[in-house]
Design a protein around this nucleic acid. Structure first.
Lengths: 193, 193
DNA sequence: CTAAGCCATTGATCAAAATCAAGGAATCTT
DNA sequence: AAGATTCCTTGATTTTGATCAATGGCTTAG
């Protein structure tokens, strides 16, 4: 159940067997069925969730009632409403499962204790957030500087798995487009080469 | 010269006088005149820059040759091409001064030594990146979920100083709009209330 | 002080994406 | 297996922002 989590942790910060056991006591496994919520807007985000298996998405609902996806999380990714998690303020994002999923949850209390007691955990978190920040910066840059077709090609190149596993209309939402527009973009990019 | 930097550092992670002195030995002050570069695309980013005074921007040049601003940094902000800084790969961003500026630079070597020797530095960096990540996430969410006028109102509400100090055409670039469009948006939002 | 640039605005036209609408394929459910 | 959804595509129309063009106000440098 914890294989992928510790595999990734060790890649970033190598752990001794004991450290690993210590950390394990702070983790909670959780299964989620497709379409089930991990978090709803307005609730306080109680966990950081690491995806061992399956796929989740986070999103907001715009004033027209449309879902706007802000992030996907497949195996090996971490998802949360970090602001809500850290401050205890109500969440601005929804998070739910796109596919049946197995998660590893870190609660606020666990997070704080781990930061205090296991120095390598702080390093892990630092590296994790740094990676997320850089990924986000790239995404933002491509949104404001690239034409839509290039953005789609970029997405395929960067996250081929997402494009394969996730329905098109969710990709469209993630890109800030309507499904119709994405369909036409695909026609141009993929279709008639 | 280091006032603001340590003020902010202490707000996040309180330091003893000795710790502060130790950290100070790793910092390099630098002045930049308006329009001078801190970093050019293609060069390796050698520093994290903390802005004590003045204003900088980071940006990319799109294929039409237009500047697309990815970030502003006023007093108290930190700016860098983090990916390039951490990996040693060529930078994808340009960084230059919008106004005459006073910076505090942290070199790669200094950064690594500080991480090794001053635990509070790692905490500071973690909190710093976390804040930057959350800010970026909000910006991205507002781009894909809000109509353009709301985004402008948001920007005014969140960063009033930026809107006041920075020329409109740079704000437009930052928002991914043409100056003409922003001008019309302003007419609607600010103008005839 | 004056000329040269730069900047914000406004108007007219053009291009691109959203919207509205409908159909057909694939998947899930019962 | 049948029915019901969900999903993707395609077409016609509308809306929105980009582009092209011109002007006047400011700032800046000589």
């Amino acid at each position: 159940m914890y294989e992928l989590f510790f595999q990734q942790f060790n890649e970033k910060v190598p752990l001794t067997a004991e450290e690993q056991e210590t950390i394990k006591t702070y983790l909670t496994p959780k299964k989620l069925r497709k379409k089930q919520y991990l978090l709803q807007e307005g609730d306080v985000c109680k966990y950081i969730a690491f995806v061992e298996k399956g796929a989740l998405k986070s999103y907001v609902i715009d004033e027209a009632g449309t879902e706007r996806i802000t992030q996907f999380a497949l195996e090996g990714w971490t998802i949360s409403d970090l602001y809500s998690f850290l401050t205890g303020e109500p969440a601005t994002y929804h998070i739910d499962a796109i596919e049946d999923a197995e998660l590893i949850l870190i609660s606020k209390a666990a997070h704080e204790e781990l930061l205090q007691t296991v120095p390598k955990y702080e390093t892990y978190i630092r590296l994790q957030i740094t990676g997320a920040y850089i990924a986000l910066q790239r995404r933002l840059t491509s949104i404001i500087s690239l034409p839509i077709e290039e953005r789609y090609k970029n997405l395929i190149a960067t996250y081929p798995t997402i494009v394969q596993r996730v329905p098109q209309h969710m990709i469209a939402s993630y890109m800030g487009l309507t499904p119709e527009t994405l369909s036409r973009v695909r026609g141009r990019v993929t279709g008639r080469k």
